[in-house]
Design a protein around this nucleic acid. Sequence first.
DNA 1: AACCCGGGGCA
DNA 2: TGCCCAGGGTT
Length: 299
Amino acid sequence: MPTTPQHARDASMVDEVIAWFSREARDLPWRRSDCSPWGVLVSEIMLQQTPVVRVEPVWREWMARWPTPADLAAAEQGDAVRAWGRLGYPRRAKRLWECAVALVERHGGEVPSDEDTLLALPGIGAYTAAAVAAFAFGQRSVVLDTNVRRVIGRAWNGLPLPALHQTVGERAHAAELVPASPEAAVAWAAGSMELGALVCTARAPRCGECPLASDCRWLAEGATGLEAAPRRVQPWHGTDRQVRGRIMALLRAAHVPVNISGHAALEDIEPGQLDSCLESLVADGLVRAADAERGLYVL
DNA sequence: AACCCGGGGCA
DNA sequence: TGCCCAGGGTT
C-alpha cells in the first residue's frame, strides 16, 4: 500500500511522541522489564480513574503480598478490598479478586495474552484488555484512554477536549495511527498516554514542552476552547458515593463486625440514606452481614 | 446510551 | 474550594 502524504505526516507525529517518551518516560515499577503480566494487569485495574502517584505504593504492597494470580485467588475477598485502601471505586478490588479466581479456574493461573480472552475477564474492559496486551505482552493494540483521546483530539483534530463518549469514527482514527510494528505500537500507546498525563493535560497543557507543538492543529488554531468547554464534574459532598466511602472506611479499619446504623461516626448521615447505601454495598457484594439481627457487618 | 461508582491533591 | 483523573458494569 502506497504511503500518502497524510499518512506520512501521521507517522512523523507518532514518531515524535515515541522519541519524546524514550526520553521522558517515568520510571514506574510496572513498566520495568522484570514486571510480570500479572503486575501489569494489577496496575491497569488500579489506574482506572486513579492517578499514578496514588497507585504506586498500593501496587507495591499488593504485589509483595499476592505476587501471582493464585496468591490473590487464595485470599479472602475482604482482605483484597481492605488492601485496596483508599484508592477509590472499591468494586475494582472485588473485580480484581474475581479476575484472579477466573485466571486460576480458566487459564491455569496465567494471564492470557489474547485481547479477546482478556476482555472476558472480570474488571477488564476495552481499554484494559488493549493495555495488558500491549504492555504485558508487547502486542500491537489500540490503546485508547482519556489521555490518548485528548492528544489525538487536539493534535490531529483541533479539539480542546474529547467528546464525552467515544465514537466509532474516533476509534477508527485512533486505530489508523497505531504503527505497524508491535514495538512501535507499544511505544506509541505508552507515549501518547504519558504525553496526555504529563504535558497535554486537560486543564493546563504545557504546550511549550510538547513534542507535537509544531504539528498540533489545536495549538495552531490558538489553543482555545478550554474555558468554554463543559465540565464533567461529579458531585461529591453528601452523595451516596461519599456515604458508601465512609462506610467502607469504617469496615476496612475494623477487623470485627461493625454496627453501621448505630455508629457514632455516621450520626450526621440521614438514616434513610445510610441504610440505602449500606444495602447497596451488600448488593454489590462488597459488604456482608455478620449478624443481621444486630445490624453487624464486615467486609 | 445513560447512569452509577471514590478519593486525594493541587490550582 | 473547584476541579481532574491509565474505565467498567449494569440497565
